[in-house]
C-alpha cells in the first residue's frame, strides 16, 4: 500500500514559491505565469487548423505575427516545467492517483460538468484580465501592481459570494 505523505506546511511552501518567483524576477526580469501558456496552445491549435482564420484575428495575431510559433515562448516552457515539478512532488509523496476530486455529496458527472464550466469562465477571464492567479495575483501582487491587486481582491470577493450556491460540489 502506498503511504500518502501529508502536505507541506503552507508557510514553508509559500516561502519556497516566493523564492522561485524572486529568482524569476532577478534572472528573467519578469514573474511567472500559467494562463498565457493555455492561450498559446489555443493560438497554436487555431494557427495549425485554420491559419487564415488565425491571421485575421487581432487577438491571435499577438501570438502568431511575423510567422512566430506561439509555443516558442518562455511561458510554455515554464508550464511544461510545472507539469514535471508537480509530477515529481506527487510521485515522491505517493499522491499520484487517477481520481475525480469532489465533495462527499457531489456526483462525478456533475463535478465534471461544473469543472468544465468553471474552466471556460477562467479561460475567458484570464484573457480579459491579462493573466491569472499566477501572472497577475502572484506576480503582479508581489510587484504591488494596482491592476493585479484589483484582480486578486475581485477573485476573493466573487469566490466568497458564489461559494454558498455551489456548496453541494465541495462540502
Amino acid at each position: 500500500m502506498i503511504v500518502r505523505k501529508p502536505y507541506a506546511n503552507p508557510y514553508a511552501a509559500g516561502v519556497a514559491l516566493g523564492l522561485v518567483l524572486l529568482t524569476a524576477f532577478a534572472v528573467m526580469g519578469h514573474g511567472i505565469g500559467a494562463s498565457g501558456a493555455i492561450a498559446s496552445t489555443v493560438a497554436a491549435g487555431v494557427e495549425a487548423a485554420a491559419p487564415a482564420h488565425a491571421d485575421a484575428n487581432a487577438y491571435f495575431r499577438n501570438w502568431t505575427s511575423g510567422g512566430r510559433n506561439p509555443l516558442d515562448s518562455w511561458i510554455v516552457f515554464e508550464v511544461l516545467g510545472i507539469f514535471a515539478g508537480a509530477f515529481i512532488s506527487a510521485a515522491l509523496a505517493g499522491r499520484l492517483s487517477r481520481t475525480v476530486e469532489r465533495g462527499p455529496r457531489a456526483l462525478t458527472r456533475e463535478r465534471m460538468l461544473w469543472g468544465f464550466g468553471g474552466g471556460v469562465l477562467m479561460g475567458f477571464a484570464s484573457r480579459l484580465a491579462r493573466g491569472c492567479t499566477s501572472g497577475q495575483a502572484l506576480t503582479g501582487g508581489a510587484l504591488l501592481s494596482v491592476g493585479s491587486w484589483v484582480f486578486m481582491l475581485a477573485i476573493f470577493a466573487a469566490g466568497y459570494a458564489v461559494a454558498p450556491l455551489v456548496r453541494r460540489q465541495w462540502t
Binding site: 471556460v120 469562465l121 477562467m122 477571464a125 480579459l128 477573485i155 466573487a158 455551489v166
Partner: peptide, 11 residues
C-alpha cells in the same frame, strides 16, 4: 476579469 475568474474558481 477578477469577478468572472472568482466565480470560475469556486465552480
Amino acid at each position: 476579469g477578477g469577478l468572472v475568474f472568482g466565480v470560475g474558481f469556486v465552480v
